[in-house]
Nucleic acid binder design. Structure first.
Lengths: 247, 247
DNA sequence: CGGATGCCTTGACCGAGATCAAGTGGATGA
DNA sequence: TCATCCACTTGATCTCGGTCAAGGCATCCG
């Protein structure tokens, strides 16, 4: 498994995920303690970062890029159970073996900590444990939201749900505006979307074509999406149009 | 909403969930602080304990009985997103509004704390926060396990998965043996099972009949289940037969 | 330049599970 | 005792999404 140690971003103060990651609540002292033990690793698109069942020797935060958590049955059926974005935490303090595969969807940079030193630090640093609890609760909410999508939504609603999540996330990470048309690139292949949504890639393709035909989305090439009317998309997703955006 | 204050179980030391709930890691002092602010509430089967969107004024632990977390779309489609069993934690410190309906499936007793005092206590008591983090991580794992079931399993596999989960949980709560035939009562109606599995109640009924016809399960009445061969059931569920039982 | 590969689209057909409908059996209550 | 109700079962039919198959289009590499 090839990886490199990066030396950029070496100051936590300059880190792009400083205020969203596990370290978000840390004060200067705590940040310095983290700086002591952290190191950067890069992975290329397609690489498996962690294999299900492997010993987990490190934990860390996504700095840039996208990775996915997936579960696979013996016969090959696979379900994505999480999408890891910048600032998301990878790994689980207090557990030795990885329950899922973690695969790099794009090129990735992670800020890593060897597990044991991190656990020790966490025991002494309530700010880290508190932040991790918050983040875990948010992930649990996201997982449960997704259970509704998987269990009860139609293929068209599933696609619309995924697009609206990506769009919202993109808006919150970059410019921040939710008004007016939203423009972004799909970070996932059709197959990855299918694995996320419990569909086949053919159905994903058909439903994207249908949403395009119906003017709900505009497509340039296969990945570049424009959403002229976010409210319309959310109706298609079967979500409340009104509900305040929590993310 | 009718409820009663119970005075039994008033000593935490005697509490049946003492070593599994949020208070599991507490020492004697901490337990006394909890005892100060706790109170018991009962709910009858069918009662809604918390409505989605409501202000959450309390958090608490399930002492006995079963409740479900459900999400509902405007058109009535509903998906269960969690099953609350004795020792499970209800509510979310740091959040004001309930994201899901919590409904009593059977008669229930909960050990409650008003949210604010509990949050204050948690800030001062790392043992509680640590335990809550552990429990939340476990729930996240369970939710992700369930995403595989919802997204990729067939109706028959879904039913087998649910039965094996209930059987395993029952074994871990009561006698503890996983060898030999397992016997238990289904705590859910066919409709609740359907809501859990993303199916219709007719399909649930048909698949249960099929598993019975094929000798995978034995049924006495509509709820009393005997599983002659747990390995067989797990094969039907599409799970690894070998994998160590984590729960 | 031409073949291979990866990602995507589209069509034809099929089947698992949803929908609609009727009926069973046990519990409750007048 | 009979009517009602509820949870459940079973059958007939329909439909959404899966499966199988072919082809398009960009990129890479010999």
């Amino acid at each position: 498994m090839n990886f490199q140690i990066h030396t950029d971003h070496s100051k936590c103060g300059d880190c792009p995920i400083r205020h969203r990651a596990v370290c978000a609540h840390c004060d200067q002292d705590e940040l310095e303690a983290l700086e002591e033990i952290k190191y950067y690793r890069s992975f290329e698109a397609g690489q498996t970062i962690i294999w299900s069942g492997d010993q987990m020797s490190f934990v860390g935060s996504m700095v840039s890029g996208i990775a996915s958590l997936t579960q696979t049955m013996e016969d090959g059926r696979t379900q994505m159970v999480g999408l890891l974005l910048p600032s998301d935490f990878v790994g689980r303090p207090g557990r030795d073996f990885a329950p899922y595969d973690v695969v790099a969807t794009t090129d990735i940079v992670m800020c890593c900590f060897r597990k044991k030193p991190f656990e020790d630090l966490m025991a002494r640093t309530p700010h880290i444990a508190q932040r991790l609890l918050q983040m875990t609760l948010d992930e649990l909410d996201a997982a449960r939201e997704w259970m509704l999508v998987l269990g009860r939504k139609t293929a068209r609603e599933k696609i619309a749900s995924l697009l609206s999540i990506i769009a919202r996330r993109d808006a919150s990470l970059t410019k921040g505006g939710m008004s007016g048309p939203m423009v972004f690139d799909l970070p996932l292949t059709r197959e990855a979307m299918a694995d996320y949504l419990g569909l086949t890639l053919e159905t994903v393709s058909r439903q994207i074509s249908a949403l395009k035909r119906d003017g709900v989305i505009l497509l340039e090439g296969k990945r570049h999406v424009t959403i002229p009317d976010m409210g319309r998309l959310m109706e298609e997703a079967g979500d409340d149009t009104d509900g305040g955006f929590l993310v």
